[in-house]
Nucleic acid binder design. Structure first.
Ligand code: FES
Ligand code: FES
Lengths: 159, 159
DNA sequence: GCATAGAGTACCGCTCAGGTCCTGTTTTCG
DNA sequence: CGAAAACAGGACCTGAGCGGTACTCTATGC
């Protein structure tokens, strides 16, 4: 149903929690603070570390810390680390999704994919921490511009 | 990996193919034109019909036709019909995703969800048919505004 | 009345995400 | 030096849900 995996969700939660500390934090401590199961958190941390989003110190008194400040980490980055790159369909980046023979939409999904990716890249983890302004222009720059009122997609594709 | 289901992909293909006809089209004919398996197409058509996106005529000489012109049908609409409403995590619209106890991100995902939904609503099926402008401002209004260059998400949340 | 084609429903197998566990390695501390 | 702490890196298992299939019923046209 077009949702990202629960692991990606948990990864964002874990990263934000990590951002609240300045010193190294252990996996069990993070699990307790976030309320997530410890093995899952440990697994997530390894993945995030492998992607370069975290730094770690082994051994006793070890733990994890962010490699970048929260504001410099986009949600897309975290999702890509856990779930792999954003691909709305299997036929972006040249793959096949079944309707191979002369499908007229073959490359068109890339546009949609790019839009989604841009949207996710425009939101940082720091944005998740601060309260979203309820009424006023929450999403300002253009992502949120009331597409229901105008003709859908009128201004999207330049054609 | 944050992809929509294959059925949703097929649904868009089928809808676009339907848009190329003015008269009723049968499910087998659509299957042949799109290259998709016939049972799957038939199932899809039933779902799309139930959602009001199609009109049908039963019996001999029956078939399907679009209930609305392609330009008035957003991708989000098709996806919602097949895959259900767009929900990036399970904790939008008040649900739980596991980290229930005092999760600081509880409502923040709604913002992300809204952004994704708006992006998908801004692209119509008609936009999928016409060639995406390669160089020039493909995604004009703001969805594509180079978040890599500026600080990610700097202008997103008004706070 | 028969052929056509959609409407509706029920079912089944396969894939993969989500979760658990184990073992090895590194570092600190007593 | 030994023991404990904590990360590193797998292997493995299970369940839900997607994707696909089949069957029957009903409506329409010739
Ligand atoms: S190849 Fe993916 S939509 Fe046709
Ligand atoms: S409740 Fe979904 S992120 Fe915490």
């Amino acid at each position: 149903m077009f949702k990202l995996s629960r692991l990606a969700d948990y990864a964002v939660v874990t990263m934000v929690e990590l951002g609240r500390h300045v010193e190294l934090v252990t996996a069990p401590a993070l699990a307790q603070e976030t309320g997530l199961p410890e093995p899952t958190v440990a697994k997530l941390l390894k993945v995030l570390l492998a992607d370069g989003l975290l730094q770690s110190r082994r051994g006793a008194r070890g733990g994890y810390e962010l490699a970048l400040p929260l504001k410099d980490i986009s949600i897309a980055r975290v999702i890509a680390a856990v779930d792999g790159p954003v691909m709305v369909t299997a036929c972006v980046d040249g793959g096949d999704c079944g309707c191979t023979s002369g499908c007229s939409l073959k490359g068109k999904w890339d546009v949609v994919n790019d839009a989604i990716r841009a949207t996710l890249e425009a939101i940082s983890l720091a944005d998740m921490t601060r309260g979203a302004p309820d009424g006023a222009g929450g999403l300002s720059a253009g992502v949120r511009r009331g597409p229901e009122s105008a003709a859908p997609g009128a201004a999207v594709l330049g054609g």
